[in-house]
Computed example of a mutant assay.
Amino acid sequence: MESKLRPVTTLNGKNYLYFAGTSYYQLHAHSEIIASAVEATRQWGIGAATSRTINGTTPLLLKLEKKIADFFETEDAAYLPSGYLSNLAGIQALEQLQIFDRIFIDEKAHYSNLAGARGTGKKVIQFSHLDADNLEKKIKKHLKKGEKPLIVSDGLFPIMAEVPPVPAYLKIAEAYDGAIWIDDAHGAGILGEHGRGLYEYFNLSSDRLYSGGTLSKAFGAYGGFIIGDNRFIHTVKSGEVMTGTNSPPSAIAGAASRGIEMIKNNPEFLRRLKSNALYLKAKIKSIGIAAEENAIPIVAFSSGNAEKMEKIQQMLMNKGIYIQFVKYIGAGSEGILRIVVSSAHTKEEIDFLVNSLAFIL
């Protein structure tokens, strides 16, 4: 990538209409985000060069955590250097609070969730992808009397744009006195009426529900976060992950702070994203590609084997369009073609993509 991230992005010296990645509002190159990063760096320097628990907690970071908590309507929040670390720190804190005894994790959950689960030293059992019935079977088989389960899943599986059946998971958690950890990296900022993520999407509220995410996707910045009540967040902040990592750089904290403000104060971003997602999916279906009828801005499809899909990607690139051919968790052994639309794309750009794809297929 040889330019700022934008609807037309320069890759290896050539401009492409860019339908990839995870910048759902194309905020990563927004002038206000960049200005906030520069201003934060001028005021606070590159970083504190120490951990949060020594003297690396700055007013900048405290202000950001307050904004995160306010956005997601929780008591408190913790900000970490990456979304990967959020899953490690969150699951570790739940273990320290003795919330669970065994972990049951979706077999296609992100690597960081599995790393966090294994890092607790507790027994980890995988259940079939998105399958509440299989989850309960595994709990009945592996959970001993008096033990409590922790159910772990992504909030939005980014390759196939799948949403887990969390209401069903919650009923299971209630039945076995357990809890749920959701890695809402992709859902935060785009799911729900206000973009508060998976729990808002399902209108769920329970003290058994815990989650974290990242500001590196919808919010146009970088760094992970964990949200929850004061006791839980205090445990996160005093845990090994936050005490053992340097305080995040000022620039990304400043950018994140502005990104949250922009999404909160501009609901038209989310409305436009949903409109574009629905428009893309209607057009894609008209050329014979299956797509779920929802406002999630991702369409993934396979076409033959890996060689054929790479050829399709290259033919689109020859027309000046870039979509992803990926081999990732959930993509299968041959990989998958993945299209991501942002709120910044125009209907004409979407039409050009779909018409070009129709010609190739």
Rank of each mutant, 00 (worst) to 15 (best):
N15G: 13
W44E: 01
A20E: 14
Q43R: 08
S23P: 06
S36F: 04
A69S: 15
Y25S: 00
F19A: 05
G13T: 06
G47K: 11
V38P: 00
T9Q: 06
E73P: 09
I33R: 02
R42W: 04
L17I: 08
E39I: 03
I46Y: 14
S31I: 10
V38L: 10
L61E: 14
N15Q: 12
L64D: 01
K66L: 04
T9G: 04
L64W: 03
I68W: 15
H28A: 03
Y16G: 13
K67V: 06
I33M: 03
T53P: 15
I34L: 09
W44T: 00
F72M: 09
Y24A: 00
Y24R: 01
K14N: 13
K14C: 10
N55D: 15
A37L: 05
T50C: 15
T53D: 15
A35V: 07
H28T: 06
A49L: 13
Q43I: 03
I33A: 01
G13C: 01
Y18K: 03
D70Q: 15
A40D: 02
T9R: 07
H28N: 08
E73C: 11
T57M: 14
S31L: 08
P59N: 03
R42M: 09
S51Q: 05
L27P: 08
S23V: 01
S23F: 07
L11P: 14
A49R: 12
H28W: 05
Y24V: 00
A37M: 11
K63M: 11
N55M: 07
Y25N: 00
